[in-house]
Simulated scan of single mutants.
Amino acid sequence: MAWWLVLWLVLPALTFAVVLRLIPGAESSPRRSAARERHRARVAGALDRVATRVRHGRHGGPPAPDPFDALHVQVRLGIVADHLRRLEEDRHAWARAERIIASQLAYDALLAEACRLAGVEVLPRAKGDPWERMREEVELASRGWTW
């Protein structure tokens, strides 16, 4: 008898919630949009890790080189480079310098990964060294990499 009461109270609430989600609303707040983007990035990272585990398997030897790894790094390099360009153009961005530095460090990490995949030696330099970044970009471009 009690579960009938719960069913009659919960079922209309769930139906109403589903109908509300189907109705398009106004633009969400910037805070909610940023939270949604962070969530999507976390899910994408988790899916990347699972895909890598599935692709390479759990056998003891080193995994065979995967051409899709190079493609993935190229796409990520393009995304980070575009993000960095937008930040440099936006004069009114909040905490612009910190965001540019963080984006450059992410770009440098992706460049190091691309160099590892392409067989380019990464010299031990200070983080954010523009000369090392330029050398790596030129080496990758000479090997046919684009982003």
Rank of each mutant, 00 (worst) to 15 (best):
D90G: 13
M134Q: 10
R21L: 14
L123Y: 07
L105A: 05
P63W: 08
V122M: 02
V80C: 14
A64L: 06
H83Q: 03
I23M: 15
A93E: 15
E113M: 04
A114I: 14
A44L: 12
A95F: 09
A95I: 00
G119Q: 01
A95K: 14
L84R: 11
E98Q: 11
R32G: 02
I101S: 09
S33P: 00
R99I: 13
W94V: 07
R55H: 01
Q74F: 00
D66M: 04
D108I: 02
W131N: 06
L111D: 11
V54R: 13
A64V: 14
H59V: 08
I23G: 02
G45T: 01
V80P: 00
A81L: 12
L22Q: 05
R85S: 11
G61N: 06
R86K: 15
W94Q: 07
L22G: 15
D108M: 01
L111E: 00
L111G: 04
K127E: 14
V50E: 03
A102L: 13
A93S: 14
E88T: 09
E132K: 02
R42D: 13
A41P: 03
E136L: 12
I23W: 14
K127A: 13
I79N: 05
R125S: 13
P65I: 11
L87Y: 03
V50N: 01
L111P: 07
P124R: 05
R58T: 03
R32P: 00
A97H: 14
A112T: 03
A102N: 02
A81K: 06
A112Y: 04
V50D: 01
P124V: 03
V120A: 03
A102C: 02
T52K: 10
G78K: 08
A34F: 03
S28V: 08
G61M: 08
G128Y: 08
P24W: 13
P62L: 15
R36A: 03
G61S: 06
A64S: 08
R21G: 05
G57V: 00
E132I: 05
R40M: 07
P62G: 09
W94E: 15
R58Q: 00
V80T: 13
D108K: 04
E132C: 03
A118H: 06
P67Q: 00
D48G: 05
L105H: 05
D129L: 02
D69W: 05
E121M: 02
G60E: 09
A44M: 04
P63C: 01
D90N: 15
P124K: 10
R116H: 04
G57A: 08
A70Y: 00
E88K: 10
R31A: 14
I101C: 13
I79P: 04
G78H: 01
I101N: 05
V54T: 08
G45E: 06
P67I: 03
R32L: 10
G45L: 13
L47E: 09
V54W: 15
Q74E: 02
A34C: 02
I79D: 11
R99Y: 06
A34K: 06
P63T: 02
D82V: 08
A35T: 00
R53N: 03
A70S: 10
H83F: 00
F68M: 14
Y107N: 12
A118Y: 13
Y107C: 12
K127G: 11
E132A: 06
A81G: 12
G45W: 04
S33C: 11
E37K: 05
P63L: 05
A35V: 12
R21D: 15
H39C: 10
L110G: 09
P67K: 06
